[in-house]
């Protein structure tokens, strides 16, 4: 199991050809209090970098992009019911959806934890 990160502050945790996707702690902090999340339908085909979900704070709506291409396998209904979980445990319990990767080679273009942490530091 390895976790990869994007410059748009999404993460994907990969086991075999399945990935679980969410947003990072940096992302939830920048968004502020999350009050609504819209997840993709199970079975939807996502492309890397394409719009996959929407998170909304009190003030604004933000798009979440898929870090990988793949088919949506499951969605996390708990975060739909309790969007505030995204602020509480963004990189753990508040995952958004899982996908079956259609092009695992895409992972090579993503950052590992150390590279992502350095990237976030460069933004401050």
């Amino acid at each position: 199991m390895s976790t990869y990160f994007t410059k748009e502050h999404e993460w994907v945790r990969v086991t075999g050809t399945e990935g679980v996707v969410g947003i990072t702690d940096y992302a939830q902090h920048a968004l502020g209090d999350v009050v609504f999340v819209e997840l993709p339908e199970v079975g939807k085909l996502l492309t890397k970098g394409g719009e996959a979900a929407v998170v909304e704070s009190v003030k604004a709506a933000s798009e979440v992009f898929s870090p990988v291409s793949g088919e949506v396998l499951t969605i996390n209904a708990t975060v739909v019911d309790q969007p505030a979980l995204i602020n509480d445990s963004p990189e753990d319990g508040a995952w958004f959806f899982s996908v079956r990767l259609t092009n695992p080679a895409e992972l090579d273009g993503l950052m590992d934890r150390a590279a992502y942490d350095a990237f976030v530091k460069s933004l401050e």
């Binding site: 502020g32 209090d33 009050v35 704070s57 009190v58 003030k59």
Partner: peptide, 12 residues
């Protein structure tokens, strides 16, 4: 200031 550390929901 758009918000303080407590956040918009708590401030509201």
């Amino acid at each position: 200031p758009v918000q303080y550390p407590e956040g918009v929901l708590a401030e509201h």
